[in-house]
């Protein structure tokens, strides 16, 4: 596929906390995937080009990928996370970039 035909990507760095502490990698992956799936649905996720690129369980920081024109929707979705399995949770977007290196 030609580069012009691919999804135009945006990378969003985020900070994740569950009850004030950074969750483990598996828990974070489950949380982020379940929340995005609940918000966008299966069709929405496919057109969003969503992917959890990186997550550091020590700092609670990570990077996710989305389609360029839908970065605002992805950030709004992140803002909508307030609890996970009864515990207070926060998925805070930090910065947005077209490359992982610049984040």
């Amino acid at each position: 596929m030609k580069p012009t035909e691919r999804f135009k990507r945006r990378y969003i760095s985020f900070s994740l906390s569950l009850s004030g502490n950074p969750p483990s990698y598996n828990e974070a992956k489950e949380m982020v995937h379940a929340h995005f799936l609940s918000f966008f649905g299966e069709g929405g996720i496919s057109s969003l080009a969503f992917k959890l690129v990186k997550y550091d369980a020590q700092s609670g920081r990570g990077i996710l990928r989305c389609e360029r024109s839908r970065a605002d929707e992805a950030i709004f979705c992140m803002a909508c996370l307030s609890e996970w399995k009864g515990a207070p949770a926060r998925l805070e977007p930090l910065s947005t970039s077209g490359t992982i290196k610049r984040l």
């Binding site: 970065a71 605002d72 929707e73 950030i75 709004f76 803002a79 307030s82 805070e92 977007p93």
Partner: peptide
């Protein structure tokens, strides 16, 4: 305080 959101998130809310 836990319900507060950043300016970027409010901007995304408006865009949505």
């Amino acid at each position: 305080a836990s319900q507060m959101r950043s300016a970027r998130e409010l901007s995304a809310f408006a865009a949505v």
